[in-house]
Design a protein around this nucleic acid. Structure first.
Length: 427
RNA sequence: GCCGGGAUGGCAGAGUGGAUAACGCGCAGGCCUUGAGAGUCUGUGGACCUUUAGGUCCGCAUGGGUUCGAAUCCCAUUCCCGGCGCCA
């Protein structure tokens, strides 16, 4: 959420930044918010005056009672004020709730380096690495490869759980674990603390960690409980310190989240329907950082570099794109995606998403920092997140890029020590 | 799941229906000191109004209720501690 004080003091700056996203709704919400905020402040001042009146009246009653005098008429008067207060309280509460609603929906301010554009076609390539493999035979896609090698079973998963689920078997299951272990070790080496978070989160925590629009389209809710399955370990990691004040000398805090991710994928019907590229459940190692505001842009580059190192070591051709204003999402001020080459689709496809959320997420979660215990707070921390590896998509990429003409798949060198030293997945 | 105890400022901890949330620690500033420390004084949550300076309200886990008036009484919820039960 944005700072309401910034909106009050510099609405033009906020409006200009929001308009870059090309979504008129944001501007409308901003206008409504400014009106509501003004109304709320006027109503609140009225209410405070009424409450003061009551305080004076009840003090008088107390004084009279102490002297054992009759206070009946005074009590009658106080009762009247009470009625007015109740009415005023309702108004204040209602405008405050609406105000908060808009404030929570208005997206983050964008960094100047974010390219302007309506959709992903306007994302800007930052750099490219590796060579696109050439095949002198008819290549197979990951579904054919995985099915033939008996390491992926999508049909039976359909029977058991429905579309967009899968079984990983044998070398497939081991490959998933190998990717997890490899990526985790790579970032542990760089000083990230591994964390297995809760896979379910309460609504109050989740509202701080993500955009409200995700509740419908992305998150699974547990029936009869106030709990949601996490869509990424970013969310429980972000919420871990909610309502806390961190110590400045402990920043930056760097974490490696380990979790399965659950996503409804509502509204993606017809998109990537086959295979395990887009599924309701997948495993992911996530990088997450809490830091001081002045170091977040440097750390954003560190996160993308870490993710690139992992992909380079696996040996996968990729490119990094600077995600444009129309495609960037609510929380991020800037976002890089890494897209790896998928031979069967003949396209670069997203495999890593790396965002600097500045103070937007931390203000929602109320995570501040200060120099030391007892000292006044210095403001909100910045939060950043980035995929280290999403195993499902990486398995797709490995199968397709490293396939051989006999239908076998070469195991990337760096993963072999996690897979009993096998060099190939054979029939 | 059942029974009992609890939740108060950055921390510790009083306050059981009638003004100011006591004392302490920490933190910030002043005085003192060559300096540090000790000592001492003042300040130390949030919002709103007005702004040299103020003023008002809110804040005792969260949400309701009772009352002229609630940290204090009642109800619900959440979390923590102890005991019993169940359990990988």
């Amino acid at each position: 959420m944005l700072d309401i004080k910034l909106i009050r003091e510099n609405p033009v700056l906020v409006r200009n930044n929001l308009s870059k996203r090309g979504n008129l709704e944001n501007i409308e919400m901003l206008d409504k918010l400014i009106v509501l905020d003004k109304k709320w402040r006027i109503d609140l001042t009225k209410l405070n005056k009424l409450r003061h009146k009551r305080k004076v009246a009840t003090n008088e009653i107390a004084a009279l009672k102490k002297r054992k005098k009759d206070a009946k008429s005074h009590i009658e008067n106080a009762r009247k004020i009470d009625g007015q207060i109740k009415k005023s309280e309702k108004e204040v509460l209602s405008s405050k709730e609406k105000r908060t609603e808009y404030l929570m929906k208005i997206p983050n301010l964008l960094h100047d380096s974010v390219p302007v554009g309506v959709d992903e076609s306007k994302n800007v390539q930052v750099r490219k690495w590796g060579t696109i493999p050439e095949f002198d035979y008819a290549i197979k896609n990951h579904i054919e490869l995985g099915t033939k090698l008996k390491i992926i079973d999508i049909e039976r998963a359909g029977k058991v759980a429905g579309a967009r689920f899968f079984y990983l078997k044998g070398a497939g299951a081991i490959l998933d674990l190998a990717l997890t272990n490899f990526a985790l070790n790579e970032i542990i080496k760089k000083g990230y603390l591994p964390i297995e978070p809760p896979y379910l989160m309460r609504k109050e925590a989740y509202e701080g960690a993500t955009a409200l629009s995700d509740f419908e389209d992305v998150l699974y809710k547990i029936e009869q409980e106030n709990l949601y399955l996490i869509a990424t370990s970013e969310h429980p990691l972000a919420a871990m310190f909610m309502k806390e004040v961190l110590r400045e000398d402990q920043l930056p805090l760097k974490f490696a989240g380990i979790s399965t991710c659950f996503r409804k994928e509502a509204g993606t019907h017809g998109k990537d329907t086959r295979g395990i590229f887009r599924t309701h459940q997948f495993n992911k190692i996530e990088q997450f950082i809490f830091c001081k505001p002045e170091e977040s842009w440097k750390l954003h580059e560190e996160l993308i570099a870490n993710a690139e190192t992992i992909i380079k070591k696996i040996g996968m051709p990729y490119r990094v794109v600077n995600v444009c204003t129309g495609d960037i999402g609510t929380l991020a001020a800037k976002k890089y995606d890494i897209e790896v080459w998928m031979p069967a689709q003949k396209a670069y496809r997203e495999i890593v998403s790396c965002s600097n959320c500045t103070d937007y997420q931390s203000r929602r979660l109320d995570i501040r920092f200060r120099e030391k215990e007892g000292a006044p707070t210095k403001g909100f921390v910045h939060t950043l997140n980035s995929t280290a590896v999403a195993t499902g998509r990486m398995i797709v990429a490995i199968l397709e890029n490293f396939q051989q003409d006999d239908g076998s798949v070469v195991v990337p060198k760096v993963l072999r020590k996690y897979m009993g030293s096998i060099k190939k997945i054979n029939l």
